[in-house]
């Protein structure tokens, strides 16, 4: 058996929710420990590194703001992949993943907006400016809320999954707009400085805590996402059991 077909089979094995539950139960503690360790290290550097000569102590907001903004976009990418999984491959866990990611993404987006606002007040003198990056991020937040609202309104999980997948894919056009908004429109928000051509523009003193915190946030997302997916699977299981019980009660003429 070739290597790729093996990975494909592994992937297909994951489609079995029970197997996913077993695997994630084994994986989850490790991810939690890794998250805690990264957060400890990241916070240590974030709080002890030197302040910026221009921004002073406020530069420390960056270590929360930038990772949460990255995560807010990454969550949407995860949801987009899941939406493709739902529509194209009909992978049974894809809609679970998309649905579990929605509240997490909304929370990270809210965090990015709040910390950005707290950073903007001392730096720009205003809590909120309608510049391109902020506006497009606000749209992302609205998208998350709309998706959650749609999912709450639809009873049947498979139909909800299909419809929200379509919407997720429609909303994906916002992601490149967010990413490049600071380059296309020359606005108040500073352009991307960590990932760019010709190396990072940030000094190592700031880069180290930033990357550590980004790693910590990513691990946190993984842990939360896995946990939320497990909950979602269990929720569906409960619903299925209830249906089964109701059917049994109907055929038996009453509860046993």
């Amino acid at each position: 058996m070739s290597d790729t077909s093996l990975t494909i089979r592994r992937f297909a094995d994951l489609a079995n929710p029970t197997r996913f539950l077993a695997l994630s139960a084994r994986l989850l503690p490790w991810i939690c420990w890794l998250t805690a360790a990264l957060f400890g290290l990241g916070l240590f550097y974030a709080l002890t590194s030197a302040g910026d000569y221009q921004q002073g102590e406020t530069v420390r907001i960056m270590y929360v703001h930038v990772p949460s903004a990255w995560l807010a976009m990454m969550t949407y990418m995860v949801m987009t992949l899941s939406a493709l999984g739902t529509l194209v491959w009909r992978h049974p866990l894809a809609d679970v993943s998309a649905r579990a990611a929605m509240p997490i993404g909304a929370a990270f987006t809210a965090l990015a907006l709040v910390t950005g606002s707290l950073w903007g007040k001392p730096m720009w003198g205003a809590w909120w400016v309608w510049d391109a990056r902020l506006t497009s991020f606000f749209i992302l937040f609205l998208m998350y809320l709309g998706l959650i609202a749609l999912n709450r309104a639809l009873e049947d999980p498979t139909r909800a999954a299909r419809l929200s997948a379509i919407l997720i894919l429609l909303g994906f056009i916002n992601i490149p707009i967010i990413k490049f908004s600071v380059d296309w429109w020359n606005t108040l928000h500073q352009p991307a400085s960590v990932l760019r051509m010709g190396g990072s523009a940030i000094d190592g003193e700031f880069l180290r805590p930033l990357l550590l915190m980004a790693g910590a946030f990513t691990c946190l997302f993984l842990a939360l996402h896995l946990g939320a997916m497990r909950n979602e699977i269990l929720r569906r299981r409960v619903a299925a059991l209830r249906r089964q019980a109701a059917r049994g009660a109907l055929t038996a003429g009453g509860p046993a």
């Binding site: 506006t135 749209i139 992302l140 609205l142 998208m143 809320l145 709309g146 609202a149 749609l150 919407l167 429609l170 909303g171 916002n174």
Partner: peptide
């Protein structure tokens, strides 16, 4: 609710 973010 769903249209507004896309229409912005």
């Amino acid at each position: 609710v769903l249209v507004l973010p896309l229409a912005i």
